[in-house]
Design a protein around this nucleic acid. Sequence first.
DNA 1: GGATATCTTCTTGTCATACAAGTTGCTTAT
DNA 2: ATAAGCAACTTGTATGACAAGAAGATATCC
Lengths: 243, 243
Amino acid sequence: MKLKKMNPKVKRQERLAEQVADFITKEIESASFRPGDIFPPEAELVEMFGVSRAVIREALASLKHAGLLESRQGGRTKVADLENQKSFRLILNPATKKMNLGYLYELRVALEGEAAALAAVRGTPEQIVKIKKCLDALEQAMSDGQSGTPENLAFHKALTEASSNPHIIHFINWMHSRIEEQIQAGREVSPDRKLPPLVQQEHTAIYEAIKSGDPLKARRATITHLKNSAMKFFGIDLPSAGL
Amino acid sequence: MKLKKMNPKVKRQERLAEQVADFITKEIESASFRPGDIFPPEAELVEMFGVSRAVIREALASLKHAGLLESRQGGRTKVADLENQKSFRLILNPATKKMNLGYLYELRVALEGEAAALAAVRGTPEQIVKIKKCLDALEQAMSDGQSGTPENLAFHKALTEASSNPHIIHFINWMHSRIEEQIQAGREVSPDRKLPPLVQQEHTAIYEAIKSGDPLKARRATITHLKNSAMKFFGIDLPSAGL
DNA sequence: GGATATCTTCTTGTCATACAAGTTGCTTAT
DNA sequence: ATAAGCAACTTGTATGACAAGAAGATATCC
């Protein structure tokens, strides 16, 4: 239960407050504390972790900001309801890395499918032109023998933006980086990530569907594309879910 | 640019660190600062806001934890890439309250539709029984003349849980509370929120589809239900997006 | 005896100061 | 001009002090 203050072996030493915050977060997520429980007073935490009150307060401030804890001057600090958090964080079960990635992909399918459908319904001509440009750039990059990863990312980004829904855009972009993080974390699966020529067909299908204003076709093309890449890169077999 | 330290008129005084953090967050979101920009040193912020360094540090700790800022001992603090944030927060445009709610509903439609489809594909018998129980409880509550709001919530929750995807479950629940918050915030639209008898038909349709294991039907029933309630309660006309 | 008011103690919120650790940029010597 | 070294600046941590509010114990009044 005690934190090490200074471990010289660790290259990039994390700030103490962050260590404490992470520790407490795990404690709460592992249900050692339940929502509504009263939290130990700061003085006790100071002893427990062997750090100054300033550090404890910075850690608690972070967790209060994130919505994990609640406090009022004079009163005791309480563990907040998970529902009431202002920010959303993935709760990653370290025991099931591969499952995590699959679950994340399911989320991705739902959102990017919807984004593509929305793009087909209300994408502006400029947005659609932008998608086309990204498609061409990707084509070019691949025929040049490059990996095409950045162009691929740009294509998906342009696609998302054509949904014109700021929350969906923001969330999809956020999720991409979370997925990337998961991939980096679970290195036992090391895909070469080289885009096979086939994907370009899938990309084109998505573009065509959006351009023709057919939301269902756009959604299906996107889902097919994501299902295929999940299988190809990670061996994940996503459920069809009726589309 | 200066914060008031103590405003006796405000009932529930927010902590200074939280005020500072919110202020800085808005500054960053409104693009006054761009990712990669170096941030003013703490000493300068102390002067700027007229608070102690401890308060500034707690605010900065919160923002670093959220992923908005990055710092290294000795170096300058920088504004982090929005993409790299570990937690997701809604960026609410205060100018367009009604739009926000509509956009949130689009997100909700995408996710709950997917959840319903997944529930139809892989919902366990126990999960489906639970949905039925919630449906019955809602029926009972409504025939008793109650609002049925808590039962309605329970029904949707049971539905979501049957998707068996922890991230989707967590995110939908989180979004419900965000939507509720938005509704509270924009009080000019004050719906009476009383469930009309018609919704029960829609609920039953969702349940039947899931029970029969038909993901497409479950998805469509859910989307129809959400579209109708968005229109009924808030006058929001959601796009069809091909389903 | 029970409800109410007061007071003591505990806890969180804020401030001030000091120093350690590390970075940045300038100065200086080669 | 380049590189080493130094000085100033910035963030990280620790400590002590006090204010403000909450919670519980105590005393008071009916």
